[in-house]
Nucleic acid binder design. Sequence first.
DNA 1: TATCCGACATGCA
DNA 2: TGCATGTCGGATA
Length: 895
Amino acid sequence: MNFAQIETELEALADEPFDSATFIYRFLEIYNAPKATLTKLKQGSGNHAVEAGDVLWKNKLFYRSTTGSLPDVADAMLADPLVKKHNPRFLLVTDGADVYCRDLKTDQTIDPRFTRLNEHFMFFLPLANIERYEAPTENPADIKATGRVAKLYDAILEANADWIERDYTHDLNQFMTRLLFCFFAEDTSIFEKNVFTSTLMNRTQEDGSDTATVLDLVFESMNTKVESRSHLPDYAKQFPYVNGGLFRDKTQVPKFSKRARRLLKECGELNWSDINPDIFGSMIQAVAQPGLREDMGMHYTSVPNIMKVLQPLFLLSLEEEFETAKDSEPKLKKLLQRIYSLRVFDPACGSGNFLIIAYKELRKLEMRVFERQKAIAKQWSLPMTEVALTQFYGIELTDFATETAKLSLWIAEYQMNEMFKATFGKAPPALPLRESGNIVHGNAAFVDWTQVCPLTEDRETYIVGNPPYLGRADQTKEQKADMAKIFAPLGVSYKNLDYVACWYVKAAHYCKSGRAQCALVTTNSICQGEQVALLWPIIYKNELEIGFAHQPFKWRNSAAKNAAVTCVIVGIRSISKTNKVLYSDAYHRRVSNISPYLVEGEDLFVTKRRAPISFEKDMTFGSMANDGGNLLLSPSEKDEIVARYPEATKFFKRLYGSQEFSKGTERWCLWIEDHDVEAAEEIPPIRTRIEAVRAARSDSDRESTAELAAVPYRFAEVRHKESDAIIVPKNTSERRFYITAGFIEAGSVISDLAFAVYDADPYIFSIISSRLHYVWGASVGGRFKMDPRYSNTLVYNTFPIPKLSDEQKASLEDLAVEVLGARETHPGKTISWLYDPDNMPSNLRNAHKSLDDALETIYIGRPFADDVERLQHLFKLYGAAMKKDTTKTKSKGAA
DNA sequence: TATCCGACATGCA
DNA sequence: TGCATGTCGGATA
């Protein structure tokens, strides 16, 4: 079976007129329901439903077509005793216009339009016996263990204060991973039950003085083959030969204090068999980095997010191959070869989450192949797994995490062997440990990746991971140097790029030379705003394309404090005819191409520019106070001063940022001209505020801010003009349909949280208020979290407008008046309320619609069909304008 | 808890 | 000088 095929057929079915009699059978056929089953369902013998027209396929699906309210009907079906009896996985209700479907196992619901059913084709995959991935629940054992290990680590450090200055951290880290392994081993069948902790407790003094000696001998024993142990004491001999590199190097064992020994005992008493290496490694990683302790594991990638990378990158493809190979021994054998030759490389692997999950998935698939072989082969004997940890490669910056990654891979291997044993009754011996993954300790932005994971044409290689994101302002000197090393030779402007761009560029070079593909979880900022034009030309130069992408989603994991960041996933591969899929939380669909803004469209991007290509007036940044809050006042604060000092009135102006405009809140600022300073300072409360500004600015580490302390009576950046202005809030909401511009009367100050077009013609307001402009801004501009963020250089200056006649301007102006008029018919309502899609009044909607229709007719002679067409046309015009611009000025244009 | 928007250091062009 | 950006935060309903 082929996923693209399912989607295509589903799309065809959704496009046809709905036929309640045949729909469900066609639907099930697409999901490969066995022919015999379908026949039985149609005949009624396999259909357990009672009501006419219903279909109830045991354990799978309960279907009803109706004309009633879909959720209500679904609730009624759910209450039907038949559900309990026949346990369907899905409830599916439709009236031919909408669909309502609930997965009773995961309790997820979708309710798409009937015609968009294909966008949810993965939702129904369990019908074809393919499970969607479900997030594991939080594991209390991991949390508890992490806490205890952290305490033990601290106690050991305390007893070995000299270790840090002597740079024994590697020894300490390796020692800790050995301990963790032993704890795990004695709670599973790798060691004899509790042998490690009990030996230590029985053989050592309570004060900890000889703990190190005993541990040293025990570790040596684990690195010595049984036949060569004559020099070791009996208690050490009872441990099996472990090796696998974990005990190979002789490293120093730290001294133990009484407290450290007691904590060792407490760690040993935990039940380590419950540890889940998927996440535990990430949590334990924080142990060795006290700075990270407080947000322990905050940055680990959750398993669902890892699957968002692995599934589209290669797991789905393996799954498809399995489905087609199901009944063919040679094909199954070929699939196994593919599994065994595949490599996964995480150049920012941390404690190895991605690698561990990938390993487990490959093992699970291998087991399914074995089961299948067993079922169809005439003769079959159980093979052992050939998925090797050495197929997994990683680079990690911190030593402790590097060691943890290797350990976690071993634990994962053991757990998978146990699962194998449960299914097939046999498993490879746990010991001695085989080689673990190829995890290298180093700076991935600096080291040569081909040294870690050599380039090869013969093996599929998948680069995955969640590398560190750091905006320009937060990069350290070293990180800037890393950036320079990678980007400077390319001769491009790069300093405004996020640090994570290093990984994309290195991955691009790797993918170009080898048979590799890459998908990374990164901050959304590299697919938005100014960074797009900086990064993506470099990628495209390597004859690569975006094969799949996941649109922005909020970062989530089970750590207490989630990172406040919005992420995307971008899959990069050599140019190919294979399907491209665009994912979002709500749907995923095949598209013709994925643009670097992660929307359907061509590989185009805009470069920020100083002057507008079309608008006839400049838009400027508002005035930034940078005052520690002292130049800004609430109405009551202002009134209090004016009441006592009426002469102060002239020093106040209304201030408008995004919120003051959108929500109508009143705010004032001190606005003192140079020649008025002395007069202003004679008013004590004003003088106090000015002094506070001076103090705040002097305190700043930033030189230019400190210099501004010399003029504390005025805003740091003064852009104000004494004229009427169009105000455009900097922040808007992704839920709105329009950018909410407005007019501000002369005499008010527009803050840096909004943009201003001073002395503007009203038709400019019309264009800014159009759907076209919103669509442009939402895709080309930056973002604040998920919400579009307006900008003059990126959005306004790049927006293409056809040449307008005076008549056209006049008619646009009339339509602007209509919009403003519609707003005024709702007195007391804020802009924010009026433009909330849940509230937006119909007259305002209509006024905007008329404006859109008129403007779009100027563009193409008719309104656009949808936003995709809007964007495509704008990009076309932009491209043409830039071409003209290049020939005229020979300056840099866009691609 | 979803929604919407503030403030300013930073540093590039 | 002008302005994008934030492994950003916080108030509000």
